[in-house]
Design a protein around this nucleic acid. Sequence first.
DNA 1: CCAGTAAGTTAGTGTTGCTAACATATGTTA
DNA 2: TAACATATGTTAGCAACACTAACTTACTGG
Lengths: 207, 207
Amino acid sequence: MNWLEMDKALIKEKKKYHHGDLRGQLLEAVRVLVERDGPDDFSVAEACREAGVSTAAPYKHFKDRNDILRGVVLLAMDRMRSAMQAAADSYPAGDPRRIAALGQSYVDFARTEPGLFQTMFGLTSGHDEDPELRQSGDETYSVVEHVVADHLGISTADPQARLRAYALWCFVHGHSFLSLDSKLPNEVNTLDEAHLLRLVGDAILPP
Amino acid sequence: MNWLEMDKALIKEKKKYHHGDLRGQLLEAVRVLVERDGPDDFSVAEACREAGVSTAAPYKHFKDRNDILRGVVLLAMDRMRSAMQAAADSYPAGDPRRIAALGQSYVDFARTEPGLFQTMFGLTSGHDEDPELRQSGDETYSVVEHVVADHLGISTADPQARLRAYALWCFVHGHSFLSLDSKLPNEVNTLDEAHLLRLVGDAILPP
DNA sequence: CCAGTAAGTTAGTGTTGCTAACATATGTTA
DNA sequence: TAACATATGTTAGCAACACTAACTTACTGG
């Protein structure tokens, strides 16, 4: 092969030695794999094949396998936060439907992207001590706190707001996990979920 | 080494070719390892070393790695169910403390044996379709259903009982998970947990 | 007693996460 | 423009792991 052919091949297959945005593409590939296999069973090697790169390449961008998951979770957490904020914004403060919608958006995320949800909240080792992940989680949680405080017409600093926001989060989080695991008894499956969310919302936030 | 020495060695080190109860010892070893490393990072090989056996031995008793976890979870679920039942039994039906105690026993289990708890409820792949695990989980959940129904003085078949039992379970389950992941904001950490359980119990179960 | 089976073994396979050493592109500066 | 520094790829290889195949040893029932 002469240089001309070489150049043609390079242009045609867009095969540069340098990849362009390997980091981004790896994050995306891993996101997909995590969705398919779960955070424990996905393999970095497969993500490399997907991205058309050697199995050593990721370690120029990430410390280790767990660090890749960390990046995936950070992106996902941003999306989740946006979705929650948008859901809340579709009803005015004080409207009980606002609470229910917020909860519903959480559950929807978990159900639409269960692998990702599990990666974010499934106690992946080491993630609980990462400051960046922690902050990202706190910011998401603060959406809940603000919505609850607004609903009650009190400050987010008020212990009542904190307490009830946390109680709501626990419920919605638990429901998300249980429904993913299909651990919920069959009868519950057929319940009207919106009804459930309204019931609990009304029970925890005084009307 | 002659036969006499051989026999002595066998007797002294209690090294029989057949192990006695390898299955049971593997389950126990894995339980400990899972508690130390989590369900994803524990290694079957290490459990074998622990049990003083070759790495091929487990496969005479279990189909694969996941099947071992399955066995561990079944045992754990029994213990958890007993603990929950005992907690509930320490207060009479109708007493709100009975509800709180039931919830507390759940949270306590999660906190005392976080690795196991994660193994049981962390969406381990394949476990959601196992009929034996499913039944074991259903039986545990039915403890909650019965306590709630008794509290309300209605039948466990009553949709109100089912709905509120499930709501309670969601809350307690979510709280357990969030508190394990230390994902709960610092302020919440300092909350009186008993207070929280009472608040939610009273909110979801009408007085 | 002996045949069949249960429950161990050793040896090996293929995959994985990760590292070391090297190669190549890019960008800055003399 | 030449040359160096750095970022980002490569190949080769290691150790650990889950799991299998083929063999060996002990137990058990007819």
